[in-house]
Nucleic acid binder design. Sequence first.
DNA 1: ATCGGTACCTGCACGC
DNA 2: TGCGTGCAGGTACCGA
Length: 285
Amino acid sequence: MGRRQETELFLFLCHTEVRTALPELPEVETVTRSIKPLVGRRIVSAEFRNLRVLRGGDPDDMAARLHGRKIAGVQRYGKFILVSLSGGGYLLVHLGMTGRLLLGGVPGKHTHAILTLDRGVLLFDDSRQFGALELHDDFPARVARLGPEPLEVKFEDFAAGLRGRKTSIKALLLNQRFVRGIGNIYADEALFRAGIHPQAQASRVRGERARRLYDAMVAVLSEAIAAGGSSISDYVDAEGRKGFFQFSHRVYQRTGESCISCGTPIRRVLVAQRSSHFCPKCQRR
DNA sequence: ATCGGTACCTGCACGC
DNA sequence: TGCGTGCAGGTACCGA
């Protein structure tokens, strides 16, 4: 990328709010890609305004340790964003439910961290405070213990992970140690596409059904990433935002509406304490 | 080891 | 109009 293009991209990003729907793998991937241009930037100063998202970290200590460091890399692991720093160490970011990373902009009521860079500023904003910002010397244990990426795991390993599991297939898909990055939206969407009831016992998803679920998981995540990637460029106004949120959910939050396949009203039940949306006719236990 | 349940937190939709 | 209530869910943690 040429110097001028780089500058234009940076100026564009400065006016872009990197926000998404509930941040699951595709949304976190979109955010991660959007902040990759920050690689090489130096952190001039850091300010932390909220202790909760620091998860026990000391704000002054973190600011001191971040001061002067360069952003060496940005990588996504499931729903985590790992920012590696020059000279070692990692800044771990989790968006929780409502977390956002803003390139530029003005700090607001829910801005919990401000990273001032040698060019631009990165804000962390999170109204519900389920997100996290942690500074680690070593590769974070909570990232190391995650399961494989759903877009990288081999079918055989995915199927092996289902064996012997007594929990519901929905709960297992949400379990980040099984595969990392799936949340409530994409669990429901993948199960619908595969024709599997969310309360089906995971160990009973075998053979052809396991294959269908694997294929559905890969397809829905891939399509969502493509949608996020394509919408980011017109994300500056309400229309662009609306287009992203209208990502074609087939069951999620469509309770009572007609199944697109058979017309049966979509139902909602609680599975693993989460609302789960499914077609009672198309999805079998 | 595995599993189910709960807490954390704020904004919003809803009914009266 | 305003107030109370339920709902939204990712992760850590608890007890069984």
